[in-house]
Amino acid sequence: MARIAGVNIPANKRVLISLRYIFGIGPSNAKVICESLKIPEDRRVNQLTDEEIMKIREVVDRDYRVEGDLRREEAMNKKRLMDMACYRGLRHRKGLPVRGQRTHTNARTRKGKAVAIAGKKKVTK
């Protein structure tokens, strides 16, 4: 087990995969980190030396905005839009798609799980 960037404790998976458990590091960032530190792809986290872990920690802390900081930044951006009362802010406030997607159907990620309309019954023969 290794702690990188605060609370994250990736398991005994490949480094490339484990790094993605950190909020703010996805497939491409994980790949860049591994390549820059010359960690082979099939190396697992529990096979890393302490030195390598230190290096990873250093790179993540220095070059990437992760976890709390990233979440805070995101929330700030949303808040800015909402306080301005611009169209995008209004969409955020209502929990609807922000970028012009259709809402007649779909948009379930933003709207949450479908709720049945009370009293609406299918016509039965």
């Binding site: 800015r80 611009c86 009370a118 009293g119």
Partner: peptide, 26 residues
């Protein structure tokens, strides 16, 4: 100040949504 860079139209909604009417049967 933080509106700079946006368009005027973004601050003047063109659609009004008053909500769905309550169910007819009910």
């Amino acid at each position: 100040e933080n509106m700079v860079g946006h368009k005027f139209g973004e601050f003047s909604p063109t659609r009004t949504f008053t909500g769905h009417s309550s169910d007819k049967k009910a």
